[in-house]
Design a protein around this nucleic acid. Structure first.
Lengths: 254, 254
DNA sequence: CGCATCAATAGAACGATGTTCAATTGTGAA
DNA sequence: TTCACAATTGAACATCGTTCTATTGATGCG
């Protein structure tokens, strides 16, 4: 299951011409390199080069391919995410905590985040604990069956999608030719035909629809995410309040 | 701005050893090829090959690079999206129409959709009309300033993010080794430690968190998207109802 | 103590990719 | 006719992911 039998024995530093390279070290180095130079510029060969190692070593340690390395990275990042909730809080509050934790966790590795979106779809969310957390909270609110499924999909799709999209990488060129094109694009907005877009440009342009980085620092979407979270959870709470026969707490034997 | 001066004259079929290749034809062929073989398997060389042409031709026609071709594709797809609304409808209804139209439009080219997510960030949404439509609707609801900005970000981030995420590609391997890994992953879900996840597996597994394709046909997230849309727009309407001094219709001279 | 095993590495090789560049072609204009 | 130049070609370069066949050297066993 992903461990590829490489470190099944407890031989911490191998037994041969080892440099002592481990799977975890490779994953860590890959994350560092992606975070440094961007996902588009990432290559197995340069990863091997930065580790002072032959490219084949990565295949031996990680498994089959680049894809397995990406899966390992995603699993590393979303691990230990379910602990972010306070079990004594009400379910709506727990949802808030969990999704804020998700965003915070992903924001720790912005350039790696596209991998999360893809890997969440292919391998399932790396941390099942996290999924279970969300489902438990919704169930406590009285959701079940199709309503549970739809609420879950709306939450995961909307909130994880928001994070994925806000961190989506711009063009690969890191040399500022991009900024020029953006400025050009902004200047093209015609106040006559798009008055509100033009008026909101200082408010919006640097936010969601053009720039992501400003002077090298990341632009904040915190408020938009907070509003999205409020709308979703408050709305779900309102729906839950209308469920026919449900006490606010546990529906089963407790 | 993206046209790269290639077809500035009105010489429809060139003037030389032309095959009569145009930028639009290249873009169309690229979309077709991506839709047929997937985005990960797309290459400029094979595009040129399928057009019976040298790879350099694409550079000459499209502009600098692969990235410019992607930008052109994104612009082609999200064009003419603002017409999907009924101008006489109330603003909440118009928002619903516009975002349903967005999803439908993107779903017409599922494999190209990852490009939309990225290009929406870099070049700005291809269709400014569409942005304007959303802003006008929100303004009619009474949103302005920071509230407008946050509502806009929540809507765009959540809804476009949902679509981006639901269409996110799985692993590149199209040969079913993926299905095996997924089945394996599903079998690993322990009813003891993750009871709700396990119980909801038949409802959820084929939905958001594992499979995207089932027997080659696309799985539907329609209900989840509808719930998300309802939660967001109903919530915004509720907020708008609490705005101090706003008549339900136009805030300005009309 | 010696030897065979085998984890762990190196290095070369293959095909494919994105991109660039120096030719070449043929048409429309002078 | 001649010239400029849009349009295309093909070769070339560096890089990439991946696979294959060695080689190395510690380790457990006899």
């Amino acid at each position: 299951m992903g461990t590829t039998e490489s470190q099944r024995g407890r031989t911490p530093r191998g037994r041969a011409a080892s440099i002592g390279l481990s799977r975890a070290q490779i994953v860590a180095a890959a994350v560092a390199q992606i975070e440094a130079k961007g996902l588009a510029a990432f290559s197995l060969r340069e990863l091997a080069r930065s580790l002072g190692v032959s490219p084949a070593v990565i295949y031996w340690h990680v498994g089959g391919a680049k894809e397995d390395l990406f899966a390992a990275i995603a699993a590393t990042i979303t691990g230990g995410l379910a602990e972010a909730q306070d079990p004594s809080a009400i379910w709506t509050e727990r949802l808030r905590q969990v999704f804020h934790a998700y965003r915070a966790s992903v924001h720790c590795h912005p350039k790696v985040s596209p991998l999360l979106g893809a890997q969440m779809k292919s391998n399932g969310v790396a941390s099942l604990d996290w999924i279970e957390t969300v489902l438990v909270a919704l169930a406590e609110g009285g959701f079940e069956g199709d309503a549970l499924r739809d609420a879950f999909n709306a939450l995961i799709g909307g909130l994880c999608g928001f994070v994925t999209m806000e961190l989506a990488p711009g063009p690969a060129s890191e040399d500022g030719a991009w900024e020029e094109r953006v400025a050009q694009r902004m200047a093209e907005v015609d106040p006559k035909t798009h008055p509100l877009t033009h008026a909101a440009l200082p408010q919006l342009a640097n936010r969601i629809f053009v720039l992501r980085w400003q002077n090298g620092a990341q632009v904040s979407y915190d408020d938009g995410y907070a509003v999205l979270l409020d709308l979703l959870i408050d709305g779900l709470a309102a729906r839950a309040a209308n469920f026919p026969n449900t006490s606010p707490a546990e529906p089963k034997h407790g």
